[in-house]
Design a protein around this nucleic acid. Sequence first.
DNA 1: TCGCCCTATATAAGG
DNA 2: TATAGGGCGA
Length: 830
Amino acid sequence: MVYAANHLTTQKQISWNQAGSAVSRETLGNRRHGNSGRPTAVRGIDRRMSEKIPLSARAAASRAPTSDANLPYLAGLNPPQREAVLTTEGPVLMLAGAGTGKTRALTTRLAHLLITGHAHPGQILAVTFTNKAAREMKDRVGALVGERVEGMRWLGTFHSIAAQILRMNAELVGLKPSFTIIDTDDQIRLCKQVIGAAGLDEKRWTGRGFAGLLDHWKNSGLTPDTVPSEDAHRFGNGKAIDLYKEYQARLQTLNAADFGDLLVHNLTIFQHHPDVLAGFHRRFRYILVDEYQDTNVAQYLWLRLLAREADHSPGGNICVVGDDDQSIYGWRGAEVENILRFEKDFPGAKVIRLEQNYRSTEAILAAASAIIDNNEDRLGKTLWTEKKGGAPISLRGVWDADEEARTVTDDIESEQSKGRPLSEMAVLVRASFQMRAFEERFNTAGLPYQVVGGPRFYEREETRDALAYLRLVRNPEDDLSFTRIINKPRRGFGEKALQTLTIAARSMGTSLAEAGRRLLETADLKGKARTSLVKFLDDLTLWRSEAQDLGPMALAEKVLEESGYTDFWRQSKSIQSASKLDNLKELVAAAGEFDTLEGYLDHVSLVAERTAADDGGQVWLMTLHAAKGLEFPIVFLPGWEEEIFPSGRSLEESGKTGLEEERRLAYVGVTRAEQSCRISFAANRQVYGRWHSALPSRFIDELPEDYVDVVSQPGLYGAKADEMPAFSRFDAAHLNASDGYNTPGWRRAQRGEPSSSGRRARNEPPMIEASAKLVASTAPGQTDIATGERVFHQKFGYGHVQHIDGNKVEVDFEKAGNKKVIATFLEKVS
DNA sequence: TCGCCCTATATAAGG
DNA sequence: TATAGGGCGA
């Protein structure tokens, strides 16, 4: 039972790279004890007698598994889905491919546990990553079991459940139950303070940077005591671990926890207080985890601790659901490894594969499968569908991002004119900067669109300010909130006064508010600063005394009004002031849904809503990450170019692991489509104001030819197969005997002369006309480029050929350095 | 304390 | 290219 404690506290075992994972796997594997026999159904039946259940269900459930088929809610489930529902005892890994009815299977499983009386609502721990997923799960279980779902108080996100557990046991880690949960912004501000206090150069060592490292550690379940000592050098001239200690100390004085702490404190409690852990073991008879492939080390350890010996059965009744092929959050600490080694972690685990896809056509699945097949580290699944055939994947090469946006917009409008609602189409990009071109084009075309993602309600300035007021009302020791709003709106309590106050607080060892109170008894503070502090502290006291009676909504309204904060925005000349005021209203209204201030503040700390209202009349625009879990009849996947997708940075930082994650992202993208998937790539792309020539993504080469339809203009990105090696094997697919390129203009273009159309617009890629034709041309005579030769490129100038790979040529340019370009862009120089 | 200008920076984003 | 945040002068 203490294996995980060992794991956490034994320094040698902790090395949170892949090697470290291997270590933990061994450790955990060897520690397994007991046999893996499944408990019989008898216990379940005993328990279920105590609950009110429909007689028919009870009778059905007590029969042999096969007759469970009579349970009404099983109707319409396919055999693996049924198995996933009915295999209630022992560890279960539900490998659910994209679009295979995962949510249905797991919500039915929960309903089954409740209806048959295997567990009371309060005995099921069901964790998700997002609030949205938790809500959906609750709704769908509710649809099956009715009211009873309200008793599922342990259905929620990792963070919300960990927060609940921490509130119940806060004292065990030196916090009060009323602790505040600080968000990323506060975390960074606190990091800055700590870095500054340590006398480090704040330019070189940024708060953001340190916050990143803290996240990394906390995601790995590491406390200042367990961080490997060599990590000390990762930040702040070897002071990294001291900074971590100091940061935690400050959080404790603030009576606050950051997101990572929620989990890490839980781990600490479970390790050091076996009685507490045992209590949860007794409580949670069944554990269910959604999106298991996204769990990080801390979440993994947390689950292991809770699942192990739950219900006194080896391995516990833990059911994890996920898809290793859709693990796309490695960069924020997720370890695919967790799902890959589930069977080893939980001996005797039953693996159930959901492989029948109900979403997409055969063509789409074929393309997705062909892509993901190139990954090595996967459990392997074969998706199949009854929807044979279907439209082939369309593949289009374009000149640049503007043209890409234009063609996509044209496609969308054409579909719309055929009666397709806009909301059935989505554009999924790799990075948000790609959205701009689409937004501009959509605007020009008057096409309504909806961006999913972006700045979230609770991260906005005005929301955060308002919340800081409320937090301070609840918790006078919340110094972070205090510093945020003491001079907002301006009260004449500036930097200088705050500094005086901070120093005083430090020396007294109290919070800023308390220090302020004492400071007022002296004569140290004068003038405006003094008057405003008196007023501010008095207001706080007043609000606090009224907090109980008023309730969150009235209190929020009162505080915002009396503090002058609302006026601050009313008087602001900022263009955004109207929307800021709206947000404040929304915030007040949201508070009305809660009975207590505490409840409300916890809610907003943990819930960051992204509101996307689907009124049916808008095209969706979002990143691939944001699209996970969604589906659309028609999906556009632009920007399939090397460096963009796969992201150059990802490859650079994480090598093969990074590439495989990018490939999973491609898989996620393609599998969002139900009927039609349209991939495109541009030959040129502007990144941070600079033009780059781009190569088609390697993922394009991984698409199965039989299911792809190339719709590029003839020769746009290729050449005649017999004259030139294709850089993509799709070049040959659309050979067109076009010879319209042998024109004077084209010949001039080949010579690299400016086009006759005169000066190019500032915003156009260089040599647009000439180069366009170059790309478009079948430039004979260029194929004889050989390694070592001197060549000329329109944008990069002169250079020497380093390496030739089909139509991709690596050139060491004299000015631009080493680059890979398409051969058609090159001109031989003698 | 405010506001302007300069410069550094730039995937993805959950709680 | 766009933006955000810090520095510095008024």
